[in-house]
Amino acid sequence: MRALLLKRGLQLIAVAWGVGTLTFLLMRALPGDMAYRIAAGRYGMDATDTTSADIVRAELGLDQSAIAAYGQWFIDLLSLNLGRSLVSGSLVIDELWHMLGHSVSLAIAGSILSLFIAVPIGLASAWKGGWLDRLVLSVSTAMRALPVFVIGLLMIILFALEWQLLPVAGYDTAFHLILPALTLGLSMAAVSARVVHVEAKRVFGSTFYEFARTKGLTHVQAFRRHGVRNIAVPVVAFFGIQLITMIEGVVMIESLFSWPGIGHGLVHAIFSRDIPVIQGAALMMGILFVVMNTLVDIACYYLDPRGGQLQ
C-alpha cells in the first residue's frame, strides 16, 4: 500500500513536471512575437503598442534566457501561480475552479449511470446465459465500435433534434446534464458490462461458490456473502483502468455538448493557443486522474486485503 501511494505521489510530480515542460516548450515554439499576440489578446488589437508588449514580455519572462525562463516557469507552477488567460485576461485558477465543478458533476453522473447500466446487465447475462448473453455481447460489441463523440451525436440527433425531448447544449438546468451523462455512462457501460459478466461468471463457476452452495447456503445467501465482494474486487479494479476512458470521454463530451468543464476549456484553449489555460487545464486533469486512481487503489486494498493479486 505504501509503495502504491508513493507511486501515486511520484505521478503527481510527474504530472506537474510533464505538463509544465510541454507547455513551456509550447510557448517557446509559438511563431511570431509572443508578447504582441498576448497583449493583443488581452487589451485588444488597437490598444497594443510596444509598451504594453514589453509589460507582457517582462511578466511572462519572455526576455529571459531559456533556462532562466524554464526555472521561473516552475517556480510559478509550484506556487500555483498559473497566470492569466491570454483570451479573457482573468486568473486561470479562478476559471479552473469554475470548470472543475462542471467536470466533476459530469464524471460522477456518468460513472453512476454506467454502474446502474452495467451491473444489472452484466449479472443478468452471466446468470441467465444463452440468448440474453449473446444479445448483450452483440450490443456491447457494437457500442464499443462507436467512438464516444459518435454516441453523443446520435443522442443529440435522436433526443434533441428528432424527438425534441431534451436540450442539446448549455448548462442551465439539470436537464442539460442528462444527455452528456447518458453518453458517458453508455460508452463506459459498453465495456464494463462485459467485465461484470466475465467476473460474475468466474465467481458463479468457482469452487468456493459451489462449496458455499453445497454446504447449505441458499442462492441469495451465497450471492450476498460470497458473490458480491468477490465480483466487486476486479470490477472496481477495472474502474481504475476505465478512468482513462472516462476522462477522455469527458473531454470529448464537454466539447460536443458545450458543457463548460475542464475538457471543454482545454480544447478551447488549444484552439486559441491560450497557453496558461492549456497548462492549468491539463494540470487539473492530470491531478484529477491521479487522485481518482489513488481512490480506486484504496478501495481495492480494502476490498481485497491480500493485495498484489490484481493486475
Partner: peptide, 8 residues
Amino acid sequence: WNALSPLM
C-alpha cells in the same frame, strides 16, 4: 484452497 471463499 479453492473451496474456501478467498476474501472472508
